[in-house]
Amino acid sequence: MKSFRAAMAASLLAACAHQTASAATGNVLFNGTITATCTITINSNGTMTVSSNLQSLSSHNAGGSAGSAQVDTTGGVQLSVDPVTTTTVPSSDVTATTWTPTFATTGAQTIAETGTATALTVPGTSTVAVNLAGTKSGTNRFSAGNYQATVTLRCE
């Protein structure tokens, strides 16, 4: 019986001899979710000038300048301009004007000048040039006085 116990103990020792002690390890997971974000910062408003035939009042005309804005985004958003609804015209101007807002971007993402909603897919900072053109048709002309219009630049 003694020899049997000794043999068992010896075999157990022999079995455990090759077992190395290992340190316990565990993984710590980190998760992060970034949802779509968008920041618009208006750098400057625009200026419209009238064309020589007095039928165009536009930031594209000579002496005019586009409005400028900066858009910071993670991507996954859409940039657009709304039809112009808020305008101030001189009392002498009683004829209809068609207002056409457009925008173009440079920087993180380049978008050619457009009036339709466009996806911003590239994360980063883009500079947006906002233009506005008012046109009159037929015999209608822009008249002397102060004109003012508001363009809504939307990021959604």
Binding site: T47, M48, A69, L132, A149, L153
Partner: peptide, 8 residues
């Protein structure tokens, strides 16, 4: 003359 309204 041309104002920009930022809308998010």
């Amino acid at each position: 003359q041309t104002q920009i309204r930022a809308q998010i």
